[in-house]
């Protein structure tokens, strides 16, 4: 068992306490209309270093309401799992979040979140999130956040860039929910912009730019959102996956997405892409986890141990 020095525990406890004090559940629920809001700025910077077969979290700088809990080692000391917490629970117009994680040579890290990321109705200001992930040679990083929910009239800009060194592996997953459909809400207004870029050895190997206006024809267009409300994507960059594993992953995903949705997989050079389009974030979660379970042993050489936080 990998032990964390007690002084570090104390540091995290203090951080958490101060954050809660500064932001006393300011918008843990939807802010009331007309309620003034001072935009929040939050930054988190993490650094993981491989040290004698173990991966240690050697740096965690935060500013504002973005914190990490104690690093976890559910699979032993080789892979370091960190849960990123955003205490306010949701993002209001004008808020800005920045997350940067750097995994050193041969380091192995897994990042996840404890709950859905909620992007509230805009108040005239754009909310922004900027994620920068950097994985050194031979290292691996898994980016496995819970689902993202765009409230009706949210105006959001998301930037996600990944830089991979030689023989570095990356698995990233996103579940985008358009509107709080559970409460009968649809995404009728607002705008979502997202840019995802993955570079390996300086070469751009994946690029996706999304620009979707709430209530636009694109939401019904069969080539785009096709009238669905949930779109999930898993991207795995690393070694080529065998035909048998790909076939098993395809069958698994198709077998789960049977409630009116559809899930499929394609393997490109050095990259596997899985997509789900449907109406259920629960189905999307199951599809993403199943695909991840098939690909992880191939990409990372590790059996799939589902992060506990995903089991809730």
């Amino acid at each position: 068992m990998y032990l964390i020095p007690r002084s570090e525990d104390a540091l995290i406890m203090r951080d958490t306490a101060s954050v809660h004090h500064l932001y006393p559940a300011q918008h843990s629920s939807v802010p009331a209309p007309g309620q003034p809001h001072t935009p929040l700025q939050a930054r988190l910077s993490l650094k993981f270093v491989e040290d004698g077969g173990a991966t240690r979290l050697t740096e965690r700088d935060h500013f504002g309401p973005l914190i990490v809990q104690k690093p976890l080692y559910p699979e032993g000391r080789e892979i370091c799992q960190v849960v990123i917490v955003h205490p306010p629970g949701g993002v209001v117009g004008g808020d800005q979040m920045e997350i940067a994680a750097k995994v050193g040579v041969a380091g192995k890290a897994q990042l996840t979140t404890p709950g859905a990321a909620k992007w509230y109705k805009a108040n005239g200001n754009i909310s922004r999130q900027n994620i920068t992930l950097d994985v050194g040679s031979g290292g691996s990083l898994e980016w496995l956040p819970q689902e993202t929910i765009f409230f009706d009239n949210a105006h959001v800009e998301l930037e996600h860039s990944v830089t991979l060194g030689k023989e570095a592996s990356y698995i990233g997953c996103e579940i985008l929910c358009f509107g709080r459909t559970a409460s009968g809400e649809s995404f009728n207004g607002g705008q979502i912009c997202q840019r995802i870029g993955i570079r390996r050895d300086g070469k751009l190997i994946w690029y996706e730019q999304l620009r979707l206006s709430g209530g636009s024809p694109a939401m019904r267009n069969p080539l785009l959102l096709a009238g669905r409300t949930v779109c999930a994507t898993l991207i795995a960059a690393g070694p080529t996956v065998s035909a048998a594993v790909l076939e098993a992953a395809r069958e698994g995903a198709a077998g789960i997405a049977v409630d009116g949705g559809e899930a499929r997989i394609s393997q490109l050079k050095g990259l596997v892409v899985a997509r789900y389009l449907g109406n259920s974030s629960q189905t999307a979660r199951r599809v993403m986890l199943d695909v991840w379970s098939h690909l992880r042993p191939e990409m990372l050489g590790r059996k799939a141990v589902v992060p506990r936080i995903w089991n809730t």
Partner: peptide, 20 residues
């Protein structure tokens, strides 16, 4: 430049379906 969009999950699924 920032108005471009290549996000077309429905079309991607048709292409993936075609592979098999």
């Amino acid at each position: 430049d920032d108005e471009l969009s290549n996000w077309a999950p429905g079309l991607s699924l048709f292409s993936m379906r075609h592979e098999t």
